[in-house]
Write a protein that binds this DNA or RNA. Structure first.
Length: 638
RNA sequence: GCUGCCGUAGCUCAGUCGGUAGAGCAUACCCUUGGUAAGGGUAAGGUCGAUGGUUCGAUUCCAUUCGGCAGCACCA
């Protein structure tokens, strides 16, 4: 007897072993048709899995959300591999997992795939779906499987299987003529994939993710249960493209980039206004939180970078300069060594600590060309950097205070969801293991005291110390790592920073490296995409446009702009010889938050018709009232 | 950096199976003074990313190079 307990608590008994499909059939023909897989005591298994003892069972159908989609996408990857092998038999298959929103498969083939090949592959996949091939699992002996794939010329598969411990049975899945190593589970048949999938793009990817290995060809696709879901996803991609900061930067005249200054930003007046709004907000927050601001040199003799350890661990990313008189300089990639130089001026006492030294530090790093991305990943950027020189005892309090400041700032910019990662010692590092033990312990303890929930990010720390990384989520669900807090016992030692302790002894301060925005360039890019260019009033480069209906009222419109500007608002007049329809359309598209329309009626009464971005409503108010209202609304937080 | 794709007017794009190019928007000027998402007309605007090669002739074909895009690797 086998007793199967279903999720609703009901129990079904069978005289002998049954498969998941048998149980589904027993419950009802509709369920049997919809069944994709089963969950046995929590673990996903094939529908055909034999159940020979009492167990908890759930039938997985398309309604099961993420689990079901993962199955579907994994199958899509296999069906794509089958299609590729049919069309291009000389291709070797490697791996093909389900990923967020879709799947990919990496192929080894001497000839590159073309976009036309993608269409052919997609068409063949649809044929395979129509063929309704059963997907069945087989168990093989490992060495036999290695020999089998070797004989097919599938050396990558053979390599993967050979790396599985001997003696373990190997699960292979067969569908039609195609057989592949796979952990499973899979759908019962290729027909279950349906037609709501699409091959998206072609890209290179290193074998086993290592840049020393050969480059494979990766095909990405997306797959859904329903055509509607597919269309919704494609539509979402289009929307994301519309908020791309590179596109909005051009359309809104915020900045541009050009090949004579690769990896740098030309900020236009409007973009720079935005930048300054962010900067002055940050400066105000830092002032209020006990930071002092400094400015340090761009070009620094290479010897300082040798002393700090950057020459050793970071030289590939540094721009260096040799002058005519043979001096060797580097453009600073970080601000920390310079801040230590300021710290070292004069003798420091424990009474001076904690010393919170901030700089909007302009840095240059020679990033690999393939890493550059708009203003999000550049070679010239400005960090909202600060170093807190403190005693070991002060680490916890400083960490707590920093976390609070960070939260306030993110909230003010409209980000509410923040994750924290803890990154510990990397392979390439400075400082002894004892120092690292101490630094990691101190940071972990401080983070716990600050009440942070963290995930571990092993080996991702800076070369001089462990770090906390703060990752925020934007409106369309993407993650951005911005803030960081790093504990550093190494640099104060290497650069000889010291203070006189209470007992008169000479001690080393600890340095906390910290940033909230990360880099202004990147953060502004994130802000642009997060708000899709529709900035809150306090950030909008142009806050108000006064648009006239007839030229008779030009004088009043200019007066209105003058009044708005006198109140500190960023206002412009639109006196052009154009119809109001066109003016409304253009300023709406330029994402100006407030439009004040002035016609004869308004001008005669000293009024304006106020129209907010995104709403067709208008509100007729006296000019001075409008100024007062907008002034209050546009005040930056804090 | 690696793989693939791409580079035509300020922007978005069409085009030339090798005979030096066109549209819409934007710009300038003219007409229009119009009440809440694009009024009409005229004009101007291009070394077809750069260099080299093949050719009678190259924006088009080939090579190199620079830049961009996507992904991979990188993000200390």
């Amino acid at each position: 007897m086998v007793a199967i307990t279903l999720p609703d608590g009901s129990v079904r008994s069978y005289p002998g072993p049954v498969t998941g499909l048998d149980v589904a059939r027993d419950i009802g023909p509709g369920l049997a048709k919809a069944a994709l897989a089963i969950r046995v005591d929590g673990a996903m298994k094939d529908l055909a899995t034999t159940l020979d003892r009492d167990t908890n069972l759930a039938i997985v159908t398309a309604k099961d959300g993420a689990d079901a989609l993962e199955l579907l996408r994994h199958d899509a990857a296999h069906i794509m591999a089958e299609a590729v092998k049919e069309l291009y038999p000389e291709t070797q298959v490697t791996i093909g997992p389900a990923i967020e929103n879709g799947f990919y498969y990496d192929f080894a083939r001497p000839v590159p795939f073309t976009p036309e090949d993608l269409e052919k592959i997609e068409a063949r996949m649809k044929e395979i779906v129509d063929r309704d091939e059963a997907i069945t699992r087989e168990e093989w002996d490992r060495d036999e499987a290695v020999r089998f794939f070797d004989s097919l010329g599938e050396k990558y598969k053979a390599e993967i299987i050979a790396s599985i411990p001997a003696g373990q049975p190997i699960g292979l899945y067969r569908q039609g003529q195609f057989i592949d190593l796979c952990r499973g589970p899979h759908l019962p048949s290729t027909a279950k994939l349906g037609k709501a999938f699409k091959l998206m793009k072609l890209a290179g990817a290193y074998w086993r993710g290592d840049s020393r290995n050969e480059m494979l060809q990766r095909i990405y696709g997306t797959a859904w249960f329903d055509k509607k879901d597919l269309e919704a996803y494609l539509h979402m991609l289009e929307e994301a493209e519309k908020r791309d900061h590179r596109r909005l930067g051009r359309e809104m005249n915020l900045f541009h980039q050009q090949e004579e200054a690769v990896g740098s930003v030309f900020w236009h007046p409007k973009g720079w206004t935005l930048y300054r709004a962010v900067e002055s907000y940050m400066r105000k927050r830092l002032d209020a939180n006990g930071y002092v601001e400094v400015k340090t040199p761009q070009l620094v003799d290479y010897s300082l970078w040798e002393a700090s350890g950057h020459a050793d661990k970071f030289s590939e990313s540094m721009f260096t300069v040799r002058t005519q008189d043979e001096r060797h300089l580097a453009v600073k990639p970080m601000n920390c060594p310079c801040h230590v130089q300021i710290y070292r001026q004069g003798i420091k006492s424990y009474r001076d600590l904690p010393l919170r030294m901030a700089e909007f530090g302009s840095c240059h790093r020679y990033e690999p060309s393939g890493a550059l991305h708009g203003i999000m990943r550049v070679r010239a950027f400005t960090q909202d950097d600060a170093h807190i020189f403190c005693t070991e005892d002060q680490i916890t309090a400083e960490t707590i205070a920093f976390c609070e400041l960070l939260k306030t700032v993110y909230t003010d910019f409209g980000f509410t969801e923040v994750r924290v990662k803890f990154s510990d010692r990397p392979e390439k590092r400075a400082g002894s293991d004892e120092v690292w033990d101490k630094a990691e312990g101190a940071l972990k303890q401080a983070a716990e005291a600050a009440g942070l929930e963290m995930t571990l990010n092993p080996g991702e720390g800076a070369f001089y110390g462990p770090k906390l990384e703060f990752v925020l989520k934007d409106t369309i669900g993407r993650d951005w790592q911005c803030g960081t807090l790093q504990v550093d016992f190494v640099l104060p030692e290497r650069l000889d920073a010291a203070y006189t302790a209470e007992d008169g002894s000479r001690k080393r301060p600890v340095m906390l490296h910290r940033a909230i925005l990360g880099s202004f360039e990147r953060f502004l890019g994130i802000l642009i995409e997060h708000h899709a260019g529709r900035f809150p009033l306090w950030l909008a480069p142009t806050q108000v446009v006064v648009a006239t209906i007839v030229s008779d009222v030009d004088g009043f419109a200019e007066e209105a702009v003058k009044a708005l500007r006198a109140a500190g608002l960023r206002a412009e007049a639109d006196l052009r010889n154009e119809k109001i329809n066109k003016k409304v359309a253009e300023h709406s598209q330029a994402k100006v938050p407030v439009l004040l329309v002035v016609g004869r009626r308004e001008a005669e009464n000293g009024q304006v018709a106020m129209r907010r971005l995104g709403s067709p409503d208008q509100e007729i108010v006296a000019l001075d009232q409008a100024v007062a209202k907008l002034t209050a609304e546009s005040a930056p937080p804090g």
